[in-house]
């Protein structure tokens, strides 16, 4: 059976490798992908949104509907992991420890964590906020922010981290970020534009259409950042302790 799979896959691989000769060369400026839509994005993107980072513009404005569902995907993942792992009834008498019990305080580890975590969190906010001008944005910033909480859980223990960021709070953040995103879309609808048409925000913010798009992008990036941050934390809480939220790794 294994050999058969192997042979079939090899045959498919050879066929597809041979057919790949038909595709345009690497980095060919004349390939359809580089000539059909991308020039429009590159030439109009800045003019219409006053945001130099075109990846952010396409992500959070032209294709913001996709990005909203991307945030919904991580929201769903956090919800599913919680639903799968957290509903176990506490029948087992002894708690399973996932690491050897340590005696005393890890002074160096915890001291270093105390030094680095505030810097990490500030940097995460910078990455979210500076996504308009440099590589960055809600996802990247959110992941960095979430990592700071995971670092707390790793250097101290899971209980210590949960005391600082409770499970209920995590859940509110997970749903709240997506809610912020979708609510901005809905506000645009109320103002008489289509869903996620950020020009609808212009009259509320008192800004021009172009600047309204720029602010709209920032607002949805913040929503994405909140969701991604709390989803990372939520996934870590549940996976590291098999859903018991006790000792952790």
């Amino acid at each position: 059976m294994k050999q058969l799979t192997f042979i079939i896959l090899i045959v498919c691989a050879l066929l597809m490798l041979k057919a790949a000769a038909d595709l345009p060369d690497w980095a060919d400026p004349a390939s359809p992908a580089s000539t059909h839509l991308s020039p429009d994005f590159l030439e109009q993107g800045y003019v219409e949104t006053a945001t130099p980072n075109i990846v952010t513009v396409v992500l959070a404005d032209y294709r913001s509907y996709d990005t909203m569902f991307e945030a919904v995907v991580v929201f769903a993942a956090a919800l599913i992991v919680m639903v799968i792992l957290r509903h176990t009834p506490r029948k087992r008498g002894k708690t399973i420890l996932y690491r050897p019990k340590r005696e005393g305080r890890d002074t160096i580890l915890q001291g270093a964590a105390q030094l680095i975590i505030p810097v990490m969190q500030i940097f995460a906010l910078y990455v979210v906020g500076h996504g308009h001008y440099s590589p960055g944005g809600g996802f990247q910033g959110g992941v960095i922010f979430g990592a700071s909480f995971i670092l707390i859980a790793l250097c101290f223990n899971l209980r210590f981290a949960i005391q600082r960021f409770r499970e209920q709070g995590v859940l509110v953040c997970v749903a709240g970020g997506v809610l912020l995103y979708a609510a901005i879309g809905a506000i645009c609808q109320v103002m008489g534009y289509n869903f996620l048409g950020y020009t609808g925000l212009a009259s509320i913010l008192g800004a021009s259409d172009v600047m309204a798009r720029s602010y709209g992008i920032l607002a949805v990036e913040v929503g994405v950042g909140i969701t991604v941050m709390s989803v990372m934390v939520s996934l870590y809480y549940d996976l590291a302790s098999s859903g018991d939220l006790d000792e952790g790794l």
Binding site: V57, D66, V73, V74, A77
Partner: peptide, 23 residues
């Protein structure tokens, strides 16, 4: 810019699937 946007979405989907699979 478009492929970058698409893979950013696809990465997130991949992470979500991985989390569910591990659970």
């Amino acid at each position: 810019p478009l492929p970058h946007v698409l893979i950013l979405t696809a990465i997130v989907v991949g992470v979500a699937t991985l989390g569910v699979a591990l659970a």
